[in-house]
Design a protein around this nucleic acid. Sequence first.
DNA 1: CCCGCGCAGTGACTAAAGTCGCGCTGATAC
DNA 2: GTATCAGCGCGACTTTAGTCACTGCGCGGG
Lengths: 234, 234
Amino acid sequence: MSAERIDLAGVLQKTGLLSSLTPPEVQLLATRTVRKLFKAGELLFCEGEPCSGLHIVAQGKVRIFKTSMSGREQVLAVEGPGSSIAELPVFDGGPYPASVVAIEDSEIAFISRRDFHAYCMEHPDVALKVLAVVGGRLRRLVGIIEELSFTTIRQRLVSTLLKIAQAEGKKTAHGVEFLLPYSHQEIANQLGTVRELISRNLMRLQAEGLLEVDARHIVIKNMSGLTALLETSA
Amino acid sequence: MSAERIDLAGVLQKTGLLSSLTPPEVQLLATRTVRKLFKAGELLFCEGEPCSGLHIVAQGKVRIFKTSMSGREQVLAVEGPGSSIAELPVFDGGPYPASVVAIEDSEIAFISRRDFHAYCMEHPDVALKVLAVVGGRLRRLVGIIEELSFTTIRQRLVSTLLKIAQAEGKKTAHGVEFLLPYSHQEIANQLGTVRELISRNLMRLQAEGLLEVDARHIVIKNMSGLTALLETSA
DNA sequence: CCCGCGCAGTGACTAAAGTCGCGCTGATAC
DNA sequence: GTATCAGCGCGACTTTAGTCACTGCGCGGG
């Protein structure tokens, strides 16, 4: 990881968080900003550490997750360029509630707690923007809770398959095809379970004729059958 | 439910959200505030409804929860006087992510989205206060996710029993005694499960000699045994 | 070429969670 | 008094989830 003071006006302006500010305002904030570079797999920070400031993803991708003592992982979010992370401890002063790791080489803008605080006082619209971002995060967390407490792993798996299919599936004569962009282990982490269950559930969906699985290559044979599985309970 | 325009200066000042404001400022805000009264059991609003403004609990208690199609309930939070609720849709404009019901007769201060927005622009410290409140909520949601995905119902039950015991337990010759303030059904809703499992798990803890259960009267016989159950995984 | 390693499939098993149905009890209403 | 109803206990059962141990494949480095 490396850190250096640089001009971040351009980067900050892309973040959306600050898009309504005038260039001189951005400039001012940029002088208080530190850029940090992280390699893929590098930890930005760990759950429980005291929180020193606000991070904004300028380039790359990071994964926010919790780890259990038994080694299981639960992904809370994956954030790309323009997202701020760890907004919350900045304001309530508590420790980080989760760990964050870079999943690609990433460039992170960092603003110290005090500076950002002061900045918000001068530019109330920034605070409102942050609130909107945090609002989105809250929404997604509630979604995760809903899934964990009301649905089976099978349903969660189907739901993520459908999401992936929608994003990058291609219609062919056989159905909708796509390549899984994750390993079974990674999917398991997203769903809060273990590798084997992903494997088994995929096999079961195949046995039921809804899917065809060949390594990471997946063909959805019966789209309506899959969506029907989701409507049994929500 | 009834609504009327009244002077809320006193109530608002108690909320903590606004504690740093000067009396005239509070006065100003209060003129834009509507008080609503809800009877125990009455719904403030439902998940999915469009969001019209910020609610602050002045008196009473409310429960924030999600409902599944199969009728299960998952409690997200219980809020008392001074807590704001539904802060988030106020800023991102989306619908309510959960339902809220009064569990006691309650008095709710309501501020329209536009008014509060404008107010934050004039008083940036209020926005920061709201951020702190939202931060706390985020923290608790992450805690719920952690519990749902890493722990068993048994552990979650023990953990809530210990919390209750700490709050209102009394030490006697037999151990720490207290009366469960909730029905089994309510506990199940908190933990995201069903009534029977609460019953069974209580019985099991009793069979193991850790507890003694008589209807809602509970005696903790072996405190360290209970806490040990929590440390197996977290 | 072979070794190691990450990833995936699988069988056998245990434990946890959830479902269904019924019966008991204590409070409240009529 | 008795009808009603919410809350609870409990047995029998099914389904999900999770664990353990092992196999096999493909790929890149030594």
